[in-house]
Design a binder for these strands. Sequence first.
DNA 1: ACTTTATTGTTCAATATTGAACATTTTTCT
DNA 2: AGAAAAATGTTCAATATTGAACAATAAAGT
Lengths: 164, 164
Amino acid sequence: MNKNQAFPWDHPRFRSWIGVGRACQLMQQAMGRAIADLGIKPPHLDILINLYRFDGISQQDLARKLLVGRSNMSMLLPQLEKRGLIERRADAKDKRVLRLSLTGTGRSLTEEAMAIQTGLIDRTLSQAPAERCLAVAEAMEDIIRILQTMESDEPDDSLLAKTR
Amino acid sequence: MNKNQAFPWDHPRFRSWIGVGRACQLMQQAMGRAIADLGIKPPHLDILINLYRFDGISQQDLARKLLVGRSNMSMLLPQLEKRGLIERRADAKDKRVLRLSLTGTGRSLTEEAMAIQTGLIDRTLSQAPAERCLAVAEAMEDIIRILQTMESDEPDDSLLAKTR
DNA sequence: ACTTTATTGTTCAATATTGAACATTTTTCT
DNA sequence: AGAAAAATGTTCAATATTGAACAATAAAGT
């Protein structure tokens, strides 16, 4: 139990990652408070921003981008549709898919929200010199790549003894 | 709308932070799969690790460390207690507080889970040179400090015009 | 002393999130 | 062409998470 360090929290990488988790959680909460006046929550904002950026995206693709299940979209999108922020139109070629887009109202609201979001991020990362900021970005890209690879490889743990 | 860069996603800090969010979400999901065999989920693991580290902590303090509400603890802890992983004993001096500790079973399970967790973090951050890893840790500490400061300052927006 | 305020934990209703099962439609295979 | 497999979105039950209201206890103010 004490190969190199006795406890996980004495392990540099572990400590570093715990920090990432905490920062994320705090930012999420701060963001929630920051956009509460607009009547939306972080999950809605994520959706709106992606619709702003990728007009006509399908629910499936949106779910993939947000790393959530399809059912989540099926629950949230009708809410936003009823509030007149988004539209869902059937795709002409593939009758299974619904293409999503922002309404005028939705677009305005999204722009407001993005301004708030960017402002909060700016204020929060203001201390970080560009160099450190870049290091963070690169580290996260590596992590994302590795985790996505693991995700694609693992599922077949039924066959083959694998590396373990 | 196009002061320096037209869209948030062209903004370096914004991109960098989005990466942090995605990495966190992916790690959380991977962690969930990794410890699923032990019959626990990430929220339970967070609790167990904190009990491992801070024996006798109160529910309130635990909630604060985890950045969640007290009610969340009131919901989760009885589950872990029923499974025989933790114990809750009334404090002798202050009859309001419940002191939490791991049972033998809970301690063993926590050690198993921590090994898995540390392994996953190690594998995921293996690409990151120590230098970059350190930069991430420092950046996160700054962010955490700033967000916690903001949190303490903002609540009094009822009185005083403040900076705005 | 004793009244007020604060703290701790619980309960409850509201909302979020997930995975499995399902119907519909498309793609692939033969 | 026709059967099997895959993809898309929905529904549903189970579980998580939150904030507000609450009861019990402690601390502070008078």
